[in-house]
């Protein structure tokens, strides 16, 4: 095992069975992602990228194969053990943001730290730190349905980072937001990656994948290409106060 691996996936398969048919969603997939990488996983719908994202995110377990996340075996864990892995090692950024609508931005960012049992003063300190990082200190006490989509996604990024996870796992992070704001999100991802965070992003948009350092293409549950992104698109944050 390589010491600097964030993720090692070996011969992972996922087969969904119904009464009449078996669907192979992932077919013997093997790859690894090093720490501080910025990987985009691409593929058309039905390619297995959502299934891969669920397994990488410890939301689901593979039918066979092994998955080592940050040096820890993840396959075949119980529901509660998976919950702990998700809490401590994975920072999720979803397409639909998935903030709790009726509570404040700050409370949303604090939520994962409640489940991790972080003492209260430290929670606030950390939440404020990451909200400052995504430029939303001034929206801290708004409820999340009072702010724009781009802002909501930045809150989600702050929430994903508060427990300093091994990987930042983003599922179509710009799917629901306007282009200008999508660029801002990508700029944040690049900034995070530059400061050492491992970023894994699932997307079907080549424009978005272009911001990563490495692109993995999936089709029919198999990896068809896995290569360095030679024409990487670099963006800077505009730092518009909004």
């Amino acid at each position: 095992m390589k010491q600097n691996s964030a993720i090692q996936i070996t011969h992972i398969s996922k087969i969904y069975k119904t009464a009449y048919i078996e669907t192979v969603a992932l077919d013997n997939v093997t790859f690894s992602i090093d720490k501080s990488e910025f990987v985009a996983i691409m593929g058309p719908s039905g390619s297995g990228k959502s299934t891969l994202m669920h397994i990488l995110g410890a939301l689901d377990t593979p039918t066979s194969g092994s998955y080592i996340l940050d040096g820890q075996k993840v396959e075949n864990l119980s529901d509660d053990e998976l919950a702990e892995i998700r809490n401590k090692k994975i920072g999720f950024v979803f397409q639909a943001f998935n903030l709790l609508p009726r509570i404040t931005v700050l409370q949303n960012v604090v939520l994962p730290m409640q489940y991790a049992g972080i003492p209260k003063p430290e929670r606030l300190e950390r939440a404020e730190k990451y909200l400052k990082m995504v430029g939303l200190t001034h929206r801290m006490h708004h409820t999340s349905n009072q702010i724009s989509g781009g802002q909501q996604q930045r809150v989600a990024i702050a929430r994903a980072l508060v427990l300093n996870p091994a990987i930042l796992l983003a599922d179509e992070p710009t799917g629901n937001i306007a282009t200008a704001q999508a660029e801002e999100i990508m700029a944040i991802f690049q900034e995070l990656n530059d400061s050492g965070h491992t970023v894994i992003m699932i997307t079907h948009e080549p424009d978005i994948a272009a911001h990563s350092k490495r692109v993995i293409h999936l089709r029919d549950g198999k990896i068809i290409t896995d290569e360095k992104n030679r024409n990487r698109k670099l963006v800077k944050r505009t730092n518009i106060i909004d």
Binding site: G57, A83, N87, L100, Y115
Partner: peptide, 11 residues
Amino acid sequence: GLRKALGAKKK
């Protein structure tokens, strides 16, 4: 679903 994704256990 979100709470479970963020690490909430069954209990």
